[in-house]
Design a protein around this nucleic acid. Structure first.
Lengths: 187, 187
DNA sequence: TAGAGGTTTCAGAAAGTTTTGAAAGTTCAG
DNA sequence: CTGAACTTTCAAAACTTTCTGAAACCTCTA
């Protein structure tokens, strides 16, 4: 009973594992850069590449994380519909499998996270601009109006950003041309 | 000598300051969300709205930060060409003024930071896919090829992302249509 | 070229984030 | 209903990031 059947195969199991890890880490870095936890990216990538459903404990082994970390990462990934939880009949464990429609995942995050963020800022910009315009300021009108104008430029750009995001997420088709032609400030 | 000249003007100076702060904080939140330090956003926003150049110590006062924090934030903002340092003749202090071309700032960050990030991931994906394909794996070929195929899908999408970024940053004009039609995997 | 006024650096403090592991909670076969 | 198998929760530990303030360092002017 030879544990390594062929000499031309020096730990190919290990090599495969290392290769998957490399990709998982790259995706983890990308996800972290995009504001998620690094583990989330690693978990998703491993599930995605393997193609079949893995149990939580297998993930803990493979990625060297604690059961707590796995549970939390999986819960969050599930919340974003990036991973699905499935049960195999006759097995008490839960298995996890990756959503494979990557664009669906990305656009959902854009819609629910980035868009909210930009809309929050837009509200502040609009409200403050209005207040700046109506603030009684004897002799200071011109200065305040200048500030309000610059704020307006910021507002315009934020609206362009929102438009872009909406277009990207809804139709998957964008033409920046018309959007880029927003009010040009003097100087 | 009345300190508050008109009754119809209850601390309008303070009100103005608070309004600018609100915007600065909103921009700070946006910038933090985008992976920069919150202070950087606050500093830029204040300089931008005020319109004229401020000294470092004025910024410290206005934003309630230490001189160290101001110095570091300003250095980093300068590195991204988001703030310019200027000297007024006959004044020993340095003054800072905001770059007002916001799109220029954004596209520079996209080019130098996001693009690099995605290219780093692309290299890993490509290298690993090649290795997966050439790994000697008796009897395991079909499984490894499946993994390589899924990795290929990831690679395609990352290339689409890079294309988008490049288009956005270079011409300011994007058509997602052709880009979206990347190889469709079975199932 | 001395020194006053200003800026940068950096070690340590504070704040924030992620991970661990053990206890509490669930679920299901028997 | 019980208990073994599995999952979730959460307080504390580990780590990371950001901020402070004082010392070192510039840079002008007189």
């Amino acid at each position: 009973m030879a544990p390594a059947p062929t000499p031309s195969e020096p730990g190919m199991r290990e090599q495969e594992r290392d290769l998957l890890h490399e990709v998982a880490d790259a995706v983890g870095a990308l996800m972290e850069f995009w504001g998620f936890k690094r583990v989330m990216g690693r978990v998703w990538a491993l599930l995605y590449l393997r193609g079949d459903a893995l149990s939580a404990s297998e993930l803990c082994d493979q990625l060297s994380i604690s059961s707590g970390a796995a549970s939390m990462a999986l819960a969050e990934l599930e919340h974003w519909a990036v991973v699905r939880r499935i049960r195999k009949p006759g097995d008490r464990r839960e298995y996890f499998e990756a959503e494979t429609d990557i664009w669906k995942m990305i656009s959902r995050v854009m819609r629910e996270r980035e868009l909210v963020q930009i809309e929050r800022a837009l509200e502040v910009f609009e409200r403050v601009r209005e207040k700046l315009r109506t603030l009684p300021a004897p002799g200071e009108r011109p200065r305040l109006d200048d500030i309000a104008d610059r704020l307006g430029k910021l507002l315009d750009l934020a609206r362009v950003g929102r438009g872009l995001l909406v277009a990207l997420v809804q139709q998957g088709r964008v033409d920046l041309g018309p959007l880029m032609r927003f009010p040009r400030s003097r100087r």
